[in-house]
Computed example of a mutant assay.
Amino acid sequence: MYVSLLGAVAFYLERTKGEEWIMPGYWLVFSFLAVLTWSAFVFSWIGIKKGGDFSIYSTLGAMIVKLLVAMSFALIYLTKINVDKMIFVIDFISTYFFFSAFEMWALLTNLRHPNKSK
């Protein structure tokens, strides 16, 4: 649902503001970051369910791998495809930030202990 909401905002900006706010090929970047975030979330969630030290290592490992893969993607995209670099950086960083914020929110809600008082 969060991906749909974020996609709807990007679609609205693309239709109203055009290429001055959203770069051409944005949906490739959006899709890549969505799949990357989902993969990192699933790996972290499995680690949290196993518990112990593995939960910490899996969460931090997933975040670091996600960051490195995303930055590698950005570097390759910038060198291979001719786009306005400033628009790309703004679109990429904002999309990465929103997906990471959602991932942190979802993981923190899974880490919280349930209230057992009646």
Rank of each mutant, 00 (worst) to 15 (best):
Y2N: 00
V3D: 02
S4Q: 07
L6V: 12
A8H: 04
R15D: 11
R15F: 15
T16C: 06
G18M: 05
I22M: 10
Y26I: 10
W27I: 14
F30D: 04
S31K: 07
V35H: 14
T37Q: 14
S39C: 14
A40S: 02
F41L: 04
F43L: 11
S44Q: 10
G47E: 06
K49L: 13
G51K: 01
G52Q: 02
G52V: 04
D53E: 08
S55A: 12
T59F: 10
T59L: 13
A62W: 07
A62G: 12
I64G: 03
L67N: 08
L68Q: 00
L68W: 03
I76Q: 09
K80N: 06
I81F: 14
N82M: 04
K85F: 08
K85H: 06
K85A: 02
K85V: 05
K85L: 11
M86W: 13
I87L: 04
F88K: 01
F92C: 04
I93V: 02
S94D: 01
F97P: 01
F97I: 02
F97K: 01
F99S: 01
S100A: 15
A101N: 11
A101W: 09
F102A: 04
W105T: 05
W105V: 09
A106T: 05
T109P: 00
N110Y: 13
R112W: 06
H113N: 09
H113F: 05
K116T: 05
S117M: 09
